[in-house]
Write a protein that binds this DNA or RNA. Structure first.
Lengths: 126, 126
DNA sequence: CCGTAAGTTGACGTTGACGTAAAGGTAGCG
DNA sequence: CGCTACCTTTACGTCAACGTCAACTTACGG
């Protein structure tokens, strides 16, 4: 009943086997069934890995992913709310960074415009 | 003519002395003047440190800060453009992350609403 | 049966951005 | 003179998130 082994899982989820074992050791992935000594996985594990990678891309640490992923699987509203809280926190952070970044870019683009205006004027005065 | 030493600079810029020396070793801060064996700094160094910390908060690595900070001090349009390029790249990344994060949050809030709706219904049916 | 690819555990290596400890130099105050 | 606060360099420690290597074992096609 083992749909696939660690190599295929890793490839289909876009990670390395090392990463799969590491996540397992951190409890981000459930301890898998074995066929003999080989870990075996199914489709849901791919989905779970992809969720983990998404959460990472969003800037969560693996610890935070741990909180969120386990709560994510649960049905209780309390768990869901915890997930939402973690995400909202990161959303707020990201939004403030974005605002700063935009302000910074604006200032820079402005200065570039200035310099280019000077350059053009110098062109015409030749 | 030494306006302050490393301890005061660090405190006023909100970093540690270790950080100041580290940044100096990376070339993020200019090699400072000395009074005897003690590094001395002025107001511009505070400003520079604050710019560095801002850039870090925006998600740049110290390497990238290095590119940006030196170019930032230069007057040439080419340098300014390089600064803008680095920042635009990070802006794009940040914006895409933000979009994902928003989608994720939306999905979560939706699920929370669902669960809460169930909870309420159960309340009324008691 | 043999070779090869893929899997196993265990342990050490890496990178970035500093922290921290050791072992001392120096400036000012009483 | 001696204390205290602050400074100096050198060097090893840390943490996250894996990479990499060693030394096997297992599974499968020819």
């Amino acid at each position: 009943m083992g749909e696939m082994r660690i190599g295929q899982l890793a490839e289909r989820a876009g990670v390395t086997t090392r990463t799969v074992r590491y996540y397992e050791s951190l409890g981000l992935l459930p301890v898998p069934a074995r066929e003999g000594s080989h870990r075996t996985y199914g489709e849901p594990d791919i989905a779970r890995l992809r969720r983990i990678e998404l959460l990472k891309r969003l800037g969560l640490s693996l610890d935070e992913v741990g909180e969120v992923i386990s709560a994510y699987a649960e049905e209780s509203p309390r768990a869901k709310r915890r997930v939402a809280d973690v995400l909202r926190r990161h959303l707020a952070e990201t939004e403030s960074k974005l605002a700063e970044l935009k302000a910074f870019r604006k200032e820079l683009l402005f200065r570039i415009d200035l310099v280019e205006a000077y350059a053009e004027r110098d062109e015409r005065r030749r």
